[in-house]
Structure formats: structure tokens, C-alpha cells
Design a protein around this nucleic acid. Structure first.
Lengths: 158, 158
DNA sequence: TATTGTTATACTCTATAACTATA
DNA sequence: TATAGTTATAGAGTATAACAATA
């Protein structure tokens, strides 16, 4: 057998495999989107209307501000978001989602929910609820930037 | 508040945060090791004595065989593993762990277990057991290469 | 003087292709 | 002819530095 003897003890191994399995399907879902998974995160934040300008957005997603420039270039070209001058600070640009972007986001979230269900299929309904709750508690306690994309970055160098 | 309203529903978000939190500490642990997290995986496989040659090792870890060459160069320079000619096939090299490598691995695994405990601290003991078990079941069902490092790669482009 | 955003450049990591030696 | 391993090279992706506009 190829799985280690201490499967249940090796939390990192299990976390990695489950997260990667989820990422595989999630990346398929956002494959056509400019910027991929990262572009999706921008749409989420823009739709939420939270951190207005590029710098705050970059920090929230845990990427460099120069990366955010290129990312927004792509998303704006696809008419999914717009850079709007901030009337209160003429250096800054507010990132707002377009109508097209909102529709695209809605469709993506529907598909992503489907992917989650697929991932949890091996578990009983009650177990799925338990797992979601336990992970959510750990997640809210964990520090650092609040986007999921950076995990991929760090997992890469495993 | 900065956390979304639908925290419990967003499995991907929670998985990403928890995995990244784990990766942060795990990468600190293996920081001094040549190849970082990936070097650790090689040590694990070499200690287990499983896939002998470089190609099998690369496939198991989900990396290109050229990457494995550079990785083993570093690990061999640090005297943690050795390339041994395979008597059965003179093209192939068997990767064996050294005594130093075994000691280093032992120390790393001890520290990694500590990091896992730290991650699970917010949960009750019974809950920790439950989470480990549920994740292990999902992990064994999930397909793909069996190393955790690739998750980091994919999470990066979120 | 500090900050937002952009651009150009350098660096890191990975994959592709070509090569040697074995099979 | 195909395979294990190495090397050189090219390609993505990211960060660093310099810049313009504004605070």
C-alpha cells in the first residue's frame, strides 16, 4: 500500500491532500476567468465593496501591489471591474464591480458550491456539517491575510 | 467585521486559511533544510525506502524529474541522502538516507508534530480526533500524487 | 516627506529540449 | 527504440527599484 501507516496522525498530509483536491476542481471552475483564482478573489472583494483602493485590496489578498496592477489590467479589459478615481484622494483608485462582473461572480459561486459538495461526498451529511464547523473555527482563529489563494503559493514549495 | 457572513458555508475559504496557517509553521520548521518542505518529503520517502530511483521519487512527489536532480544535488551536498548505483539497472540511481539524514528527519518530525498540536489548540481534544479522522477519510478518497507540497503550488495562484 | 499607482527590470522557480549512458 | 539522469535554456510568476502624481 502506498499510504503511510500513520494516516490518521498525519494532519499535514491529510490537509494537503484535501486542500489540493479542492483546488483542482476550483481552478477548473475559474479557469476562464482573467487572473484565475486570484481574479475570483478580487471579484468577491469588489462585490462586497470593502477595501476600496488597490493597495488595500492587494494587502487583503496577500499579493504585491505591482501584481495587483497587472491583475486589474486583465479584469478591467474583460469589463469585470472598473478603476474609479477616488474623490477623496486623487492618488487612489476605487475598484468597483461591473454588472457583467457581478453576473460572472454569481455563476462562479454557484459552481464552486457544487465543487464543495462533490468534495464532501464521501462523508455523511452530519459529518459534513461537523467538518465545516470545525474548520471554520480553526480558520477564524488563524491569523494572516484572509484569502485562500496564498495557501497555494506556500504549498507549492512543499 | 472582516469575515464574511457565510463563514460556515465557505469550505474553500476555511480550508485555505487552515492549510496556510499550518504551512506557515511547517515551513518555519523546515526552513534550514535544503529544498525546504520538498526536501523534507524526499527524506520521508528515502527513510521509508519505498520508490528507489529518482524518477519514481519525482512522480510520487508530483515534481518534474529535472527538479528532482537539483533537489537531490542539494540534499546530497548536505550529506542527508546519497545517490547509489542500482545494481539491477546501471542507468538508475537509488536514493538512500544517511545517518545524518535520519537524525535530521527525526528531529523535524518531532517539531512538525508540535506544530500540528499548536494548530489544533482552539479545539477540544475530542474535536481534534474528529477533525483528524474526517480529514483522513477525505484524503484517502482524493486522487492525485500523494505529497502535500503541491497543494502549496496550486494555492499560490489563488 | 510619505503614499498610490505604474512601469521596467531582475530574480526565482519550473518546464522543455537536447544530450549521455544504459537497456 | 526507449528509459534514467543530467545539463542548458526558455518560460511563467513574483518582487525590487525608479518614477509620476498627489497628499
Amino acid at each position: 500500500m502506498s499510504t503511510p501507516q500513520h494516516v490518521e496522525a498525519d494532519l499535514g498530509w491529510a490537509l494537503g491532500r484535501v486542500t489540493r483536491a479542492h483546488l483542482r476542481t476550483a481552478e477548473l471552475v475559474v479557469a476562464g476567468l482573467p487572473g484565475g483564482p486570484r481574479g475570483y478573489q478580487v471579484l468577491v472583494e469588489a462585490a462586497r465593496g470593502g477595501p476600496g483602493n488597490q493597495l488595500a485590496l492587494a494587502q487583503k489578498l496577500g499579493v504585491d501591489r505591482t501584481v495587483m496592477t497587472y491583475l486589474l489590467d486583465e479584469l478591467e479589459r474583460a469589463e469585470l471591474v472598473r478603476r474609479q478615481p477616488d474623490p477623496a484622494d486623487r492618488r487612489a483608485r476605487q475598484i468597483v464591480i461591473t454588472e457583467v462582473g457581478r453576473e460572472r461572480l454569481c455563476e462562479l459561486e454557484r459552481k464552486l458550491r457544487g465543487a464543495e459538495e462533490e468534495l464532501l461526498r464521501p462523508l455523511e451529511p452530519a459529518e459534513r456539517v461537523t467538518l465545516r464547523a470545525l474548520l471554520a473555527r480553526l480558520a477564524t482563529d488563524a491569523g494572516g491575510p484572509s484569502d485562500a489563494c496564498q495557501v497555494a503559493e506556500e504549498l507549492k514549495r512543499c
